[in-house]
Nucleic acid binder design. Structure first.
Lengths: 111, 111
DNA sequence: GCAATACTTAGCCTTATGGCACAGTATTCG
DNA sequence: CGAATACTGTGCCATAAGGCTAAGTATTGC
């Protein structure tokens, strides 16, 4: 059954929203406060905060509050989860290709 | 504003569901009929078909009906969309690292 | 200290998602 | 041809997602 992974699922769900992907992109250039980030999106602060929380809950960003300002920072390593999934998928493909090649070889030998 | 991409969005949304990721995994080993695929998941056929349609609508699989059987096949290249996004993200990080290094160098020279 | 700033909390609303049952259609098998 | 098979279509339902307003709290600047 579905080799379910909460980690994998959380990360993909977080990345499935364009606002959240964009936050990740912006944070790629360096940390920013919630306010500075929010200013660039066409939605209210409370709505935006939900996205921030989703990103943090799934380990894609880290935030810290200093005074009244909360600063967001990217957790780069976290995207490795996606890399890992892609790599696994490609391993499966390669195995299949190997099997197919063996089949072709064996079939040729039989002729 | 949010450099929105329907392609990117569709692919990530499709990958955000564990059932659909699992379908991709299974199809990695080779094409399968809807029935054969569905049998492995704890849900009814109509429910399962929705996932198949989402995957097809977003270009991750291709399906074809022959007789009464619909066969599903993976579109491997489609995952390149994810690779592309990851690569872009890393380009941004690298640029930042470069800027930081320049900053450090310049600061040292000033001393 | 009082106003402005920067979030936070709470509650509401609409739409999308993922699942279901049930009925229908098209093929295939005996 | 009639039954079994393999989807397909419809409509319903519950929950989750993403947005809003309004009000609250904690800091900071004048």
């Amino acid at each position: 059954m579905a080799q379910y992974s909460v980690e994998l699922d959380g990360v993909f769900v977080a990345l499935a929203d364009p606002t959240r992907r964009d936050v990740i992109r912006r944070l790629g250039r360096g940390p920013l406060s919630v306010g500075d980030l929010a200013r660039e999106f066409p939605m209210t602060l409370p709505s935006f905060m939900k996205h921030v929380r989703v990103l943090e809950a799934n380990g894609l960003i880290r935030t810290a509050k200093s005074g009244r300002v909360r600063t967001c920072e990217l957790v780069r390593e976290r995207l490795a989860v996606v890399d890992g999934w892609l790599a696994q998928q490609r391993r499966i493909w390669d195995e299949r290709t190997d099997r197919l090649e063996r089949l072709v070889t064996d079939t040729k030998e039989e002729q």
